[in-house]
Nucleic acid binder design. Structure first.
Length: 564
RNA sequence: GUGCCCAUAGCUCAGUGGACAGAGCAUUGGAUUGCGGAUCCAAGGGUCGGAGGUUCAAAUCCUCUUGGGCACGCCA
């Protein structure tokens, strides 16, 4: 628990007037204008209860306040009671608290709880475009956030490794492909074959029939089809792993759609056993209220994506006994997940409410809509390479002396790509823009990295001059670190809120605010001064900022650097 | 046609019941004989898509409406 400032303030409040403590805590807010005070209580509601005029009540309350060790003065301004608190005191309290616990195991919210996360989930044989970045980095960040809160997190990469598209790929590979090209650059090569298939099949529709036949064989475990499919899969996953490594993303399992292919019949039987299915137009469906029916089997008897997802969720519940199951999948699939969860509900499954779809907006492109089939796509690796290249160039200009430049450029470049994706609400669509992606100024990941690096350098200099820095009760804090301390104190609540809303951007925004507060402080005050006491208290504040920045960036899945 | 999502400064976005609506980018002007200028400070720029309603109080909640996006039984 952070320093409970509102609780402390409200305690004093209830000692002078008869009012519920929780009520005051819920009313306490930050004034819109910092000049009005540090905290404020709007008096409209209490005035109504007491049948008084709000401004008079505020005035009356202010007159009852006496200065004490935590509240310096209280001032009525219109219907608001503005409080000026002891900034030095609270700055010290916050620094003390952070120095003491260092954010290890802050909240035990997730203790003994398991969350299963389904994220990234690219399709084999489709290149890892920036479209896949979102699910990957949002999922990865949520995974780190929940782990931080003590949850056991199972990350599952639900690879798209099954379906009629593999019939197409096998057809194309057998017709035009060769092993050498495949091994050399598997995903791009398969992608080329995929594009070529669609080009050729427009001229010769019979190719579609050949493709269907190959997928049919694959489902029947035909040895040749299986061998080719497995080769595609293994080589592709190898490629994906390389990209994930660059992004710092890890999964507990790479169980794709094919993993569930043997469970489909029994899954359909389970759904049928709950007597909610119907046969309609030769297909097996589950009629749903207020939404289109969910289809379990096509008229030709084969199953669908939804059937596989039902199989997957039943399997995951049985295997992991999760308390929470998250699907980090784009917003176009909202209906699909509503249907999935509704089917669970109709089956009488109580834990269905533990499953959540975490939707996010799509990446759009300024000119054309990107079609995988036609071959228009921006590759994630291209984006990462450009960002890293730019970072590297700037490092050469500005910091030619630093060690391991390549590693630093990689961390800064990739980090900026990740941050760019996480800084806004997930649900918003993103229009891809090179200028924005490669911008290293302002509200960017680079800004945070730079701030962290500069703090590291500052603290290094400080320790060379004055030795290590640690908290002790004799220190007298000034007011200059107050804005920072208030933000530092919000860190834990920020993490909890981002977990509750499944929204990494809340942490991203918070870190920008914190870094900005630090940079303002840094420009206005010297840390290393002739006064030992002042230097030490300021260095402690800065040390806390460093801790929070580092922890926060790691929660977003971004590696921090000491210099850049 | 039905359902869901989005709409706030030129651009990209914060802000889910409280005081004159905030950032970044872009534009303009400033800051370094001292801790990293990838920084900081300042200026201009807004009928919060529109109309009703609820409330002491609405960008925020409700209804309607306009514009954009997505989805809608045999793809995933």
């Amino acid at each position: 628990m952070a320093v409970d400032i509102k609780g402390r303030l409200s305690e004093y409040f209830v000692s002078i007037i008869p009012v519920d403590k929780e009520k005051i805590i819920s009313l306490l807010e930050k004034p819109s204008n910092p000049g009005f005070g540090d905290y404020a209580i709007p008096c409209f509601e209490m005035a109504k209860e007491k049948k008084k005029r709000p401004d008079e009540l505020a005035k009356e309350l202010s007159s009852r306040f006496e200065g004490n060790e935590i509240i310096v003065r209280a001032e009525a301004r219109g219907a608001y009671l503005n409080l000026f608190i002891n900034r030095s005191y609270f700055t010290g309290e916050v620094v003390k608290e952070i120095s003491r616990k260092g954010f290890l195991g802050l909240s035990k919210k997730g203790k003994n709880k398991t969350v299963v996360m389904d994220y990234s989930s690219p399709n084999i044989a489709k290149p890892f475009g920036i479209g896949h970045l979102r699910s990957t980095v949002i999922g990865n960040s949520l995974k780190k956030i929940f782990s931080f809160l003590g949850y056991r997190v199972i990350g599952i990469n639900h690879i798209g490794d099954w379906g009629t598209q593999f019939g197409k790929l096998i057809t194309a590979f057998k017709k035009w492909g060769n092993d050498d090209s495949l091994k050399h650059d598997p995903i791009n090569y398969l992608y080329d074959l995929y594009v070529q298939f669609h080009r050729e099949s427009e001229k010769d529709p019979s190719l579609e029939d050949v493709a269907r036949e190959w997928f049919n064989l694959l489902e029947k475990k035909d040895s040749e089809a299986t061998l080719i499919w497995k080769k595609f899969r293994d080589l592709s996953i190898e490629e994906f792993r390389r990209i994930y490594h660059r992004l710092g993303v890890e999964f507990e399992h790479y169980t794709g759609e094919s993993f569930y292919s043997d469970m489909l019949d029994s899954t359909v039987e389970k759904v049928q056993a709950s007597k909610i299915t119907e046969v309609s137009e030769d297909a097996l469906i589950v009629p749903l209220d207020d939404m289109p029916p969910a289809m379990l089997r096509k008229k030709d008897g084969s199953t669908l994506y939804l059937t596989r997802d039902i199989a997957a969720v039943l399997y995951r519940k049985e295997r992991y006994n999760f308390d929470l199951a998250l699907y980090v999948v784009g917003s176009p699939q909202m209906l699909h997940f509503r249907q999935l969860f509704k089917v669970l509900e109709k089956m009488g499954i109580k834990w269905g409410s533990q499953c959540h779809h975490i939707p996010f907006g799509q990446i759009r492109f300024e000119d054309q809509s990107m079609s995988t089939r036609k071959g228009n796509i921006i590759f994630l690796e291209e984006v990462m390479d450009k960002a890293v290249g730019l970072a590297s160039k700037i490092i050469d200009e500005k910091s030619p002396h630093i060690d391991n430049k390549m590693d630093v450029a990689e961390a800064v470049g990739v980090g900026s790509i990740i941050f760019n994706d996480l800084r806004n609400s997930r649900i918003k669509d993103i229009t891809f823009n090179w200028n924005e992606v490669l911008n290293f100024n302002g509200e960017t990941g680079v800004y945070l990295q730079y701030t962290h690096a500069r703090i590291s350098s500052l603290l290094e200099k400080y320790s060379q001059k004055a030795g290590g820095v640690s908290y002790d009760d004799s220190l007298q804090f000034g007011e200059e670190g107050y804005d920072i301390a208030i933000l530092l104190n919000d860190f834990e609540d920020t993490i909890l809120k981002s977990a509750q809303d499944f929204e990494p951007s809340i942490i991203a925004r918070y870190l920008l605010e914190l870094a900005s507060a630090f940079n303002t402080f840094y420009n206005a005050h010297r840390v290393i001064t002739e006064d030992e006491g002042i230097s030490r208290t300021r260095a402690l504040v800065v040390l806390c900022v460093q801790k929070v920045l580092k922890t926060g960036l790691e929660l977003l899945g971004i590696k921090v650097v000491e210099e850049m």
